[in-house]
Simulated scan of single mutants.
Amino acid sequence: MRAIRGEPERFDPPGSPDPELVDPVYGAFETVQDATRRLDTLESRLRERGDRRAVFLTIYVRMTREVHDGIETGRFADPAWMRRYLVTFANYYRRAFLAFETGDVAAVPDPWRVAFGASMHDETLVVQDAFLGVNAHINYDLALALEDVGLDPNREQKYEDHLAIDEILSGLVDAQQEALAQVYAAGVEDVDALFGRFDESLTLRSMTEGRAQAWRVAVVRTDVTTPPIPALASWVLQTTATGGALFVLSPQLDPAVLAGLRRFEQADTSVSTMLTRIDDRLAAEDG
C-alpha cells in the first residue's frame, strides 16, 4: 500500500504537463555535462514560473558541478565510476520529475510525490522545499543509484570515493544553510538561530548520515539476493524517505512564527529573488 494513499490530492501532479518543463528531462542523461546543462535549464524555467520545485535544483545542480570539478582535478581514485555515479544519480531525479510532470503518478516514488506536490501547492517554506528534495534524493534515490553503478570490484576504493564526496560538499552545505537563513532574515548567519530544534532535526548536514545509510542499503541489496531481503530493503527505503518527507512538512515551529514566515514569503519576496540570494551566497563561497 502506498504511504500517502490517505490524502493523494495534496500531492497531485499538475493537471497538464508543461512542454517546456518536460523537454529538459525527456531522454536519459548521458554525461555529467549533459545532466548539469539540462537540469540547469529546468531550474531556470521553474524559477521563471515561480515554481518552488526550483529550490532543490538550485542546490543540487551546484552540488553536482562541485563533485564533477573534483573528478576533473583528480580528487577520486576511480573517476570513470564517479562519472557513472553522478549520471545515474541524476537520472533518478530526472525520471521522478518527468513522471510527476506528465501525470504518471504510479511511476513517481512517494518521497518525490510528497516533495513535488507540496512545493507545487504552495504549502512549504523555501527551507522545506530544500529539505524535501534532499530527503528524496539522498534517502531514497542514492541507494538505488549505487546498486545500479555497482559496488564491485574494488569496493573499498569505491567506498572511499563515496566518502570523498562528503568532504567536497561540507563547505557548500554551510553556505547553503547561511543562504537559506538570509532568505528569511538578513544578517542571520545561522539557521539554528531562526529554526531552533527544527533545524537540529532537518539540517542539511544530515546528508552525510543519509549518504552513509544509502551505502549500507546498497551493500545489502548487492550482497543478499535471497527473498525477502531485497524487497524488505526497498520497503525500508520507501518508508523511511516518505516518513522523512511528511516530517519535514510538520515542523515543530511556533504556529505564529510559521504563519509569519509564510506571509513574508508570499508578500515580500518572490521565489526567484530567494533563489538569487542563495545563488549569490553560494557563489561567494566559491570565490
Rank of each mutant, 00 (worst) to 15 (best):
I4R: 08
G6E: 13
G6V: 03
P8Q: 02
R10L: 10
R10D: 11
F11D: 08
F11Q: 05
D12H: 06
L21A: 09
P24F: 09
V25P: 15
G27N: 07
V32D: 01
D34H: 00
A35Y: 04
R37S: 13
L42C: 08
E43L: 00
S44T: 06
S44E: 14
R47A: 09
R49V: 04
D51Y: 04
D51S: 05
R52N: 11
R53G: 09
T58G: 11
Y60Q: 04
T64L: 06
T64E: 05
V67F: 15
H68I: 03
D69V: 08
D69T: 08
G70E: 08
I71F: 15
E72Q: 15
G74K: 00
F76P: 11
D78M: 03
P79R: 08
M82E: 09
R83E: 15
T88S: 13
F89E: 13
N91L: 11
N91T: 06
Y92F: 08
Y93N: 04
Y93C: 01
R94N: 13
R95G: 15
A96G: 15
F97T: 09
E101I: 01
G103C: 01
G103I: 00
V105W: 01
V105G: 01
A106L: 05
V108M: 05
P111V: 00
R113K: 05
R113Q: 11
F116M: 10
A118G: 00
S119R: 12
H121N: 07
H121Y: 04
E123F: 02
V126W: 07
V126A: 02
F131W: 01
F131M: 03
G133F: 05
H137P: 13
H137T: 08
E147P: 11
E147D: 15
V149Q: 12
G150C: 14
N154D: 13
R155L: 13
Y159H: 12
Y159M: 12
H162T: 14
I165K: 07
L169A: 08
G171K: 00
L172C: 03
A179Y: 07
L180I: 04
V183I: 03
A186R: 01
V191E: 14
D192Y: 14
G196N: 10
R197M: 15
R197F: 15
F198N: 14
D199S: 10
S201M: 12
R205W: 14
E209M: 02
A212V: 05
Q213S: 10
A214L: 07
A214Y: 09
W215Q: 01
V219Y: 11
R221Q: 14
T222I: 12
T222W: 15
D223K: 03
D223I: 05
D223H: 06
T225R: 10
I229Y: 12
A233K: 15
V236H: 07
V236W: 06
V236D: 05
Q238E: 13
Q238L: 13
Q238N: 10
A241S: 12
A241H: 11
A245T: 07
V248K: 13
Q252M: 08
G260K: 04
G260L: 03
R262D: 12
R262N: 09
R263F: 08
R263K: 09
R263C: 03
F264H: 13
Q266E: 11
Q266W: 11
A267V: 02
D268C: 03
T269F: 15
T269V: 15
V271M: 11
S272P: 02
T273G: 03
T273K: 05
L275P: 09
T276C: 08
T276D: 14
I278R: 08
D279C: 05
L282T: 02
A283H: 12
A284H: 06
D286E: 05
